[in-house]
Design a binder for these strands. Structure first.
Length: 284
DNA sequence: AGGCTAACCTGGCAGC
DNA sequence: TGCTGCCAGGTTAGCC
């Protein structure tokens, strides 16, 4: 589910809620969603590895991954996979426990504010929580092989990343080693906005087209972030609200519906093994 | 190199 | 109502 805009919207809410606060305790309800610093899903987990008694020093994002760092240089990389989400709220408030809640942190309150509950919920369990020991371990082991941030890409840099590949441009956009953050929704949206067919060999794009595509990527992601992302089903912001960018989709999920530019029906096909929607007359 | 498939999982929905 | 099959925001491994 969550691509860069969804994760970024989650990150922004978390910053407002828990940055610079102390982790009071953590409960792991499903051990195998957590990978320890050796990449294992089994074995003993000390609370301190998940931040207990540590101050949350930073909350960052790299591509689709959320990065929470503690004041002892350890931290977590949270991958939301297809159906993962972070839920956050007043720890004292009683409510029914969400289904598929795998990890729960309690963030200490103070005299002026309540303790906060932060939970990792993921029905399909394609996501997970990866523990790291320090910035070097984080970059070399957990976040390795990620391309540059899609929000920052320009035409020239995009061209350099493609390295003359003959792969379909959509396949390349989905490749996190080439560019970090784009998934199926925003690939279709960016290609539609730039008027480029999803199955064009990347190497065939002109400098002008690369510039247009890069600009479309930045614009699309920016609008989506501001809207809190796209909620198809599972995506929620930590406060429980839904992302509203779905109503701004021009391509994704609109197969058979009239193109917003030319009114002809949008076409569905499969590119890079993913369902793809595009307009045969507006995208060349 | 890269395309294709299956696998990892649960749940929602359409169709019968 | 209830069953079956298909589909889904992602990623990885294995095979040609």
């Amino acid at each position: 589910m969550p691509e860069l805009p969804e994760v970024e919207a989650v990150r922004r809410q978390l910053v407002a809620l828990i940055l610079d606060r102390t982790v009071e305790r953590v409960r792991v309800h499903r051990r195998d969603v957590v990978r320890d610093p050796r990449g294992r899903r089994q074995g003993r987990l000390a609370g301190e590895q998940l931040g207990v008694d540590r101050v949350i020093r930073s909350i960052d994002r790299r591509g689709k991954q959320l990065i929470i760092e503690f004041d002892d240089d350890r931290g977590l990389v949270i991958r939301l996979g297809m159906s993962g989400r972070i839920e956050s709220g007043d720890a004292k408030r009683r409510r029914s426990v969400p289904l598929h809640r795998h990890v729960a942190w309690t963030i200490a309150g103070g005299s002026d504010r309540p303790a906060i509950r932060m939970e990792f919920i993921d029905p399909r369990r394609f996501g997970g929580v990866h523990l790291f020991e320090g910035s070097e371990d984080r970059d070399q082991r957990v976040l390795r092989n990620l391309g540059p941030e899609a929000t920052l890409i320009d035409g020239k840099a995009l061209g350099e990343r493609l390295k003359g590949s003959r792969r379909a441009i959509k396949a390349v956009l989905l490749d996190q080693q080439v560019l970090a953050g784009i998934g199926n929704i925003y690939a279709d949206e960016s290609l539609f906005r730039s008027g480029i067919r999803p199955d064009r060999p990347a190497v065939d794009l002109s400098a002008l087209e690369l510039e247009r595509l890069a600009r479309s990527i930045r614009t699309t992601l920016g609008l989506a972030i501001d809207a809190g992302g796209t909620t198809l089903r599972d995506h929620r912001l930590p406060d429980g609200s839904a992302g509203t960018f779905g109503s701004g989709h021009l391509a994704y999920g609109r197969s058979g519906q009239p193109c917003t530019r030319c009114q002809r029906p949008m076409t569905a096909c499969v590119v890079a093994g993913r369902s793809t929607t595009w307009c045969e007359s507006c995208q060349a």
